[in-house]
Design a protein around this nucleic acid. Sequence first.
DNA 1: AATGCGGGGAT
DNA 2: ATCCCAGCATT
Length: 369
Amino acid sequence: MADTLDRALLEWYDSRRRDLPWRRQRDPYRIWVSEVMLQQTRVETAIPYYLRWLERFPDLLSLARAPEEEVLALWSGLGYYSRARNLHAAVREVASRYGGEVPRDPDAFAALPGVGEYTAGAVLSIAYGLRLPAVDGNALRVLVRLGALEGDITRTAVRREAVRLAARLVPEDRPGDFNQALMELGGSVCVPRRPRCGDCPITAWCEARRRGLEGVLPRRTRRPAAPAVPLAAALIRDGSGRVGLARRPAVGLLAGMWGLPAFEVGAETPAGAVAAALERHLEEAHGLRVRVGPPVARARHVFSHRTWEMTAFAGDLLEAPPEGPGWRWLTPGELEGFPLPRAFSRLVEAAGLVPAAPAGRPERRRSTR
DNA sequence: AATGCGGGGAT
DNA sequence: ATCCCAGCATT
């Protein structure tokens, strides 16, 4: 076995690294896209989105030139939509300010929207070979065990300590591979519960293992359960059977995405008054005069911090709606391929307007038989 | 320093 | 049910 931690880890990585789409080249733009998609997202989830993204936006300038609507459409279903908006804005800044070349300077790169300490370290170490740490959730767990850091990892101080440890460990030679190896080790061997220390290439250096703490580290206070929030949505048809969609506000949950017009029902609204409250919401938020009828579909959607208990009410349009950038009508056929966030696509499915979507998220195939 | 922000897979 | 994922911006 190699006699230093970094050599042992790199040897392990060389023998078992996965063949991932973003590991086939070192184009900084492509590495960057992968790192943003992978923020809080599993590798297997991101891959189909990544491939489709690069087909449409093969280089930085093609993304910089694209309209935001198309960018969000390609991201839809992946979640955390500000990632897409920030990446789009950042790429435009690189195009205009840096001549289309991703800056090598860590401070300049990290100043771009959506680029934090992790993403800067990952992109610059992988694409440019800079000796920078990149500590994601997986690497954090490895580092906490390696150094037997006993503090609560939800605290900033403990995370900083882990980053300092990583900065000490990352070698001049192959820093990008080292960072990826640390992450991959956390994802496959140094897993949250019951780590497979027998398969670990750096167990000889692991302080938690030496002290018998590998099963209890990292320590973390648990999050409170997400509250359930009722959501009232309107399923409004126009004279020709099309369905009304509203663009959500630019800030907040699902910001800027399209969905059924909807609002979160507060505790002050009794169950019997929801329909009337929905009518008021449609009037105030969209200038629509609608008579809200009976509920036609229900669905539950779990976010990380709240759960929507969704009810869709049928709505009869009393008066022609105003045209505008925040409102559009789609036929059920158009709805089927439309980039809706999952919460709304599920609700529309429950209403029987479109067939249930196929398992693969990104390829919204039209009619596969 | 804590919170908001998606969606899904593993246990 | 709970945890957690190649995190970042905002407060």
